[in-house]
Each structure stands twice: as structure tokens, then as C-alpha cells.
Design a protein around this nucleic acid. Structure first.
Lengths: 224, 224
DNA sequence: TACCTATTCAATAAAATACTTGAATAGATA
DNA sequence: TATCTATTCAAGTATTTTATTGAATAGGTA
């Protein structure tokens, strides 16, 4: 193999990865898959894409080895092929926010609804929860919670928040989190709770590898 | 801003980064820029692209905020806009090599010339050099060495290796490194040295952030 | 067996991207 | 001032990527 041929081979492979990440639709799919395995249909629904289009994108992602699929009964489950894929997503997001300052501004505006949704850092939340002054709720779908969640978090999907109000402690702070800094579920939850008198906050991120240092039990996703 | 509008905004920005990284030409440009600032002409020469094409790619990279440019006299110098860009390159390469196992195989075949170029890990090299049993040579261009290099490394660009043979110690091992695991300069150097009786090795990587933990002096790139 | 569901495939049209060529610009130098 | 050099711009063509649609497949289920 000639030197140039070798270069083409190497750079061709490197860019397979970036190419797969370079479409907004695919990036969004990966973002959802970072929450846990999902079927094509569900991904299509969550991203508002057609099923065929979703399937095609997933195909592209599989060819780039960013996702893997498995079959259970009649459903094909897709999931991230490697933890480093999630890292790549994280790093790309962080870089984007750093290099395009208005991104961070817009995100803050949107997720805090112009100031009426207070944000809490992971570090502070950890302290509040540990000392018993606050409870942590995970407002994502149940299976996403099951796949992986923050220590001591309770699962209350956004849609079931109203019917679970009675289970929330009255005097304590309530800290909600969802898929991450760009996900609006937690903000919706906080607004809903504040309207009902709770001292609610949203977490500034979701359950990432760096926020979860504990081991994950393969059986039920419970963090020890 | 509507929820969907917000999503489009966010994912649109994220993918600006990946899109910029998704062309082999641009990836290669960034790879060279990770060694230090360079002019358009030089980049064009090193990548064997036309100057106009190189300039256009650099333009695209600047719009994605991956590179920044400055002007000195009649030359425009381009450089990475952020250290995280280098991290992104690293992570992408690592992921590609992990997910496409034949990549690693081909790389090993090429860079070790089928076994005649022994490789040494950074950790081992550090020990050998510290104990005085080996010398470390940086075979990249001088300005790349000046921009950043490994501790205790001596600069001997590949083209000047022959005329500097007399300065290499006879009884010691010689460890060569260049831009990284996919760069062939170090391999060329090792073959050249072995033909002349030296016990030469190539390092398995280049001067990355993780291999350099020391502070870099802004004046001359010397690592303390 | 026939039927149903989830997923993939194939074909198309529209849109974006890549590389080439030649001209334009803007600073230095003579 | 004229000239030279490095870089960018603009236009054109070829290629690649995208979303849509409707058909095909392949496992379950009745």
C-alpha cells in the first residue's frame, strides 16, 4: 500500500464517523439512543421523522459503527455501539456551545423560560439530596430511567407528574432532570411544580458518564 | 421560540462541527494544524491539494469555528481554535480504530513495515529516556517541534537525519516520533537508522495532550 | 394457512458539497 | 508607482446526500 493510499484509507475511515454525525436527524437519533435502546418506531415518533427515513438513518449509523441493533420478537432495538459514541456527542456539544456563544444564551433562555425556571448544578444537587433537603426526580420515560439514572433519583415520567404530586414531599426542594441541558422536559416539570407551590429546580445536565461515577447493575440499571 | 425550532437550532449547530470534520481533506488539514500554526500554501503542499481548494476548506473550518486565522505580513496563519478540537480528532480516531478492527491492522502493517520497525509505548520510552538508556528524537519539521514537543526530545527533521547521524550516541537506543500513530515519518527514520546499525524504535503516538502533562512555555514551545 | 405488524429496500427528485479553473484582491517589495 | 506574492472569490460541473413514496420482506399471530 502506497503512502497516499494509506492516508486515504485512514482519513476515509475517520470521516465515516464524522459523516454519520453530520446530519441533524442522525445526531438527534443518537441523542435519544444515549438514553437507552429503542425501536425504530419509537425513534421515529420522538424525532418526528418518517419511519422509513428513520430506518435509513439508522442504517447509515450502523454502517459507521455508531449503533448496533438486536432483535427481540418482532422489534429491532437499536443502541449506541460504544460508550465513546456518547462521549463524542458530549464533546461535540460542549465545543459547539463554547465556539458559538449565542448557543449557550439561547439554551439558557429556552430551558429557564426566561428566568422562571431556576437551574441547579449537579454538585449542589448531590449535596442537597444527600442531606435530605431535596428529592431528585427523573422525568424521562420509564425505560430510560431503567436503562440508567442518577443515584437516589425517583422515576416520574413527565406525563405522570400530576397523578404523582401527592407522593412528593411538601417541605423539600424538588430537583428534576431529563435527557440533558438541551431537553425541555425538566423545565416543563419545574414550571408545573412551581405553579403548584413546590420549590422546584432543574438540573443543568442529564445522566452522563461523568455525572455517574458509580457502577451500573446490568439487571435493572440501578446505580449502587 | 418553539420547541421544534429550538431543537433545529441546537442540532443545526452541533452538526456544523461534525459536518466540518466529515470531509477527508478537512480532517487531514486539522490533523496537520494540530502540530501548530501553518500557512495556506504549506497546508496545500503537505496535503497535496490545490491552494484554492485548501483555502476553501479552511474557510469552511473557520465558519465551523474549528480553526482561527491570523495575519503576519503577507501570510495568513491558521491554527486550531481550541484544544478541544484536537481532543475531538483524537476521540474520532480512537473510535474509528476500535469499531473498524482492520484499521488497526492496516496501520500496524504500514507503520511497522511488516515487522521491521519496532514500536515502543510512551510509558516505556519515558523510562528508557529518563534512565539514560535512550535518546528521543522528533523527526517533524522544526516549527512543529518549536510549537510543542515531548520532554527531552531533540529536533531532527527527517530530511536532516543523515547529516545529523554523528550527533546520535552510538551505544544508546534511538526512539523516533512524529505526528502520531498514522504518520510515517518516524517509521522512515527508524528504517534509515536501523540500516546504519542503530537500535531504533518508533513511538506509538505523537505529542498529544495526554502524553504531555507539563506546562508549555509560550515563548518557544519548550516543555518544562 | 392467511393476515398483520415492524422494518427495510428501491426509485426518485431536490438540495448540498467537492474540486477545478481563472480572475480579483490586498499587502509587501522594488 | 509598478510588480510580485499569498490568498480569496466566483462560476461551472460532477458527485453525494436527503426526504418521500410505495413496494417488499420477514416474523409473529389468529
Amino acid at each position: 500500500m502506497e503512502a497516499r493510499e494509506f492516508k486515504n484509507f485512514a482519513y476515509g475511515h475517520f470521516t465515516k464517523i464524522s459523516k454519520a454525525l453530520s446530519s441533524p436527524g442522525r445526531f438527534e437519533l443518537l441523542d435519544y439512543l444515549a438514553q437507552g435502546p429503542k425501536t425504530v418506531e419509537r425513534l421515529a415518533k420522538e424525532t418526528h421523522m418518517s419511519v422509513a427515513n428513520t430506518s435509513q438513518h439508522l442504517q447509515a449509523l450502523r454502517e459507521a459503527r455508531l449503533v448496533a441493533s438486536s432483535k427481540v420478537k418482532n422489534h429491532h432495538y437499536y443502541e449506541l455501539a460504544d460508550n465513546e459514541v456518547a462521549e463524542l456527542l458530549q464533546l461535540t456539544k460542549r465545543l459547539a456551545e463554547r465556539q458559538f456563544p449565542d448557543m449557550g444564551e439561547v439554551r439558557t433562555m429556552e430551558t429557564t423560560a426566561g428566568g422562571s425556571v431556576p437551574v441547579m448544578s449537579s454538585a449542589e444537587a448531590l449535596e442537597e439530596v444527600a442531606s435530605g433537603r431535596a428529592v431528585l426526580i427523573d422525568v424521562r420515560a420509564e425505560d430510560e430511567y431503567a436503562s440508567r439514572h442518577l443515584t437516589d433519583a425517583v422515576s416520574i415520567p413527565l406525563a405522570q407528574l400530576e397523578e404523582n404530586l401527592e407522593h412528593l414531599p411538601i417541605g423539600k426542594k424538588v430537583i428534576a432532570y431529563c435527557r440533558g441541558a438541551y431537553c425541555l422536559y425538566a423545565s416543563d416539570a419545574v414550571r408545573f411544580l412551581r405553579e403548584r407551590g413546590f420549590e422546584a429546580y432543574r438540573l443543568d445536565e442529564g445522566p452522563t458518564d461523568s455525572s455517574i461515577s458509580q457502577e451500573i447493575d446490568a439487571d435493572d440499571g440501578e446505580i449502587r
